[in-house]
């Protein structure tokens, strides 16, 4: 059941993004930024957590989950350390993704040559 929900949810988000790009003048850069803000907004009241529980891995893949894990780590730390915990815990959950993206991008630039 998780597989079907993952397919539907991830596909749904991508279709919405495609609609926004086709019918307005926004570029993919705008849309991904909007989606991240939207994900952070959804997790303010734990709605995204609920979606992940229902959908599984398909909800962790779109860029909305980046916003979700930023605010999730921040709130978790804030509950033990107070308001400055928001700053301490911001990267707690996304650290793996960002670090891996930086390292792989660096290695890609070292190994390959630009095609253009």
């Amino acid at each position: 059941m998780y597989l079907l929900y993952s397919f539907l949810f991830c596909g749904f988000l991508c279709a919405i993004a495609q609609v926004i790009i086709d019918y307005t003048k926004l570029t993919p850069g705008h849309v991904t930024s909007i989606f991240v803000v939207f994900g952070a907004f959804l997790d303010t009241f734990n709605i995204y957590d609920w979606i992940i529980k229902k959908v599984g891995g398909g909800a962790l893949l779109p860029i909305t989950s980046f916003g979700h894990s930023l605010i999730h780590g921040a709130l978790e730390k804030a509950s033990e350390k107070g308001i400055f915990g928001l700053l301490m815990g911001m990267f707690q959950l996304t650290a793996t993704g960002i670090t891996a993206a930086i390292i792989f991008a660096f290695l890609t630039a070292l190994v390959f040559k630009s095609k253009d």
Binding site: Y2, L3, S6, F9, C14, Q18, G56, G57
Partner: peptide, 19 residues
């Protein structure tokens, strides 16, 4: 375009959950 985005995005989601 919208339909293709839906299918390919959904496929990635499916693979993610499968993994």
């Amino acid at each position: 375009h919208i339909f293709i985005s839906f299918l390919s995005g959904g496929f990635l989601g499916l693979v993610g959950e499968g993994l």
